[in-house]
Every structure is written in structure tokens, then in C-alpha cells.
Design a protein around this nucleic acid. Structure first.
Lengths: 156, 156
DNA sequence: AATGAAATATCGGCGTT
DNA sequence: AACGCCGATATTTCATT
């Protein structure tokens, strides 16, 4: 692992380790060790360095939202009427648990959010009663995801 | 844990277990057991049932893309000139590793994608040389994420 | 649905090469 | 950077309540 201009470059063994853990964060270190052909202690050492470099942001259990009844994903472009209110509007968006992402973006909108709802009725409720009531929100444009074909992380 | 209309309802202990693992997938089961006050074996049993229910989609190591030099995220709305070509266009998008999400959406576009690039130059390259060259893609609209304020999973 | 016990496997630090 | 070693923990199964 080398660090060049604050950017980390990793070798093939690091890649194998990370690829294993990116697909299954609970895979035992020793299992990875056997697969890549070095000792568990060496994997440990490499993981410690990768953590110190900041490359590893953490590990997460992923849930299947559909099983909890959340089956409608939507992207919503938000127009704010006063740029000064942006930080406060974002704070209010944080209070809506269904908002999974929030980006300041170039282009038409001030903000683009991704929202996960149970169904269209729930989406309408969140739009009208939660998002549109935030001070500064003047208008929204909604794009419902009919079907998500790709969902992945950065590839190594 | 109860299943009603194919939707899973979980109790408070399941929630505590899942919340723990959603924030750190490698947290030892026994540590969670001590925290919630039941035995490790019981946690195990619950996790097995949660897996069987399909609620647990897996676990992932998360990387910090900036440390790899990827610091520009963009959303791109894609117009396709013939609906028949959609599946093939999506296949081609899958071949672009920088495309992290791809949704069929309602609204202006046929497809909305999320793409992670090193910088603006890389974004331009991907747009002109990769995305725009896909057969059927007639036009794109790009929204660069200047700053991501929220990034989270569904909350329990 | 939870428990304790028990066998097996892993974790993670240390000193060495 | 990698290794073997090893005590402490964790995992996982099973009979029992």
C-alpha cells in the first residue's frame, strides 16, 4: 500500500482482502488468509494499515427494505427559494427517516434527495406533509424508480 | 418476529441486534448478547430466522472512495430514443464500473444513473466516450453532487 | 424462544525472521 | 512484510426447559 498525493494505492493482496470483505463483512480473516495464501496475522497487519489510511469506512449489515414493506424508491429534485436557507432545509430533511441521501447539486435544483417509501400513498404523504412543508422549499420534481437494475460499490 | 402479508415485523430485541450490526457488521455476537441481556445462542437463533425471512440482505465492508481518488459523484438522466433498446442499454451500463446505480424512472428520462468519477475530467470522459456511445442513448442531463449531506440506510 | 455446556474455530498481540 | 505461537474470545450446535 502506497500513498501518493493523499490517494492510496493498494496491491493485489489488499484487493483480494477488501473484495472478500466488501461482499461479506463477516467472513473470517483466517478463511481469507487460506484463500490468498498468507497467514492470518499478515492479513491483520494489512487490514490495520488499510484502516489507518482511511480507505475502510466501516462495515454494515444490509437489510432488504421490501421485506419491511418499503417498495417505492424515488428521487426528488428540490427547488429552494432562498439559498441562505439551504443548511436549515437539509437539517429538516435529516429529520425525515425515509430520506436516505441528500445532495447539493449543480443544475436545475438546489438539492436532490433519494427517498424510500412503503408505497405511492406513503410517497405522497411524505412529499406533501413533510418535504413540501419545509421552509424555503418552493417546488419539487419527483422521479419514481420503477426498477433498480444496478446497485453496487466502487470496484477494485 | 411475525410475518404479515409477506412483510416482516420484528420486535425490540431484533431491532437492537440489527441496529448494532447495521453500524458495525463485525461486532461480535457475544458483545451484542451482553448488551441486550440474552445469551449468545439466542442471538444466533434470532439471526438465523431473520436471515431465513430474507430481511438480511448481507453484510458489506464500505470503502471511502475519496481515498482512492474518486471525489466526483454525479446523477445522470438518460433519454433513450427507443424503448425496445432499454435492456441492452442497461447491459452496457453494467459494463461501466463507475456506474453505481441504475434505475428505470418515471418522468423525463428513461433511466437515471449514479456515477462515481475521479474528477470532472473523468466524468466528461465517461459521459462522452462511454455513456453517450451506447446505442439508443439520445441525450443526457448531468447533475453533479457538490456535497452529500445524508447517506444512510432504512431506519429501524 | 431462551438457556448452559461443550467442541471447534477465530482473534489479535508478540517476538522472530 | 510475513511468520508461528498461544491465551483469550467467539462461534455454533445441541439437549433441555
Amino acid at each position: 500500500m502506497k500513498i501518493i498525493n493523499e490517494v492510496v494505492e493498494i496491491d493485489g493482496i489488499d484487493k483480494e482482502i477488501l473484495r472478500s470483505l466488501m461482499s461479506d463483512a463477516r467472513k473470517p480473516i483466517l478463511e481469507i488468509a487460506r484463500k490468498v495464501g498468507i497467514s492470518g496475522a499478515a492479513i491483520h497487519q494489512r487490514l490495520r494499515k488499510l484502516e489507518e489510511s482511511g480507505l475502510i469506512a466501516g462495515s454494515k449489515f444490509m437489510l432488504n427494505p421490501k421485506v419491511l414493506g418499503y417498495s417505492t424508491m424515488a428521487f426528488i429534485g428540490i427547488y429552494l427559494d432562498k439559498a441562505m436557507r439551504n443548511p436549515e432545509a437539509v437539517n429538516q430533511l435529516k429529520e425525515i427517516p425515509e430520506v436516505l441521501e441528500c445532495h447539493y447539486t449543480t443544475g436545475n435544483w438546489s438539492i436532490l434527495i433519494k427517498m424510500l417509501c412503503k408505497d405511492n400513498e406513503h410517497l405522497m404523504y411524505l412529499l406533501n406533509q413533510k418535504v413540501q412543508t419545509i421552509e424555503g422549499v418552493s417546488r419539487t420534481e419527483t422521479f419514481i424508480s420503477l426498477n433498480q437494475q444496478i446497485d453496487r460499490q466502487i470496484q477494485l
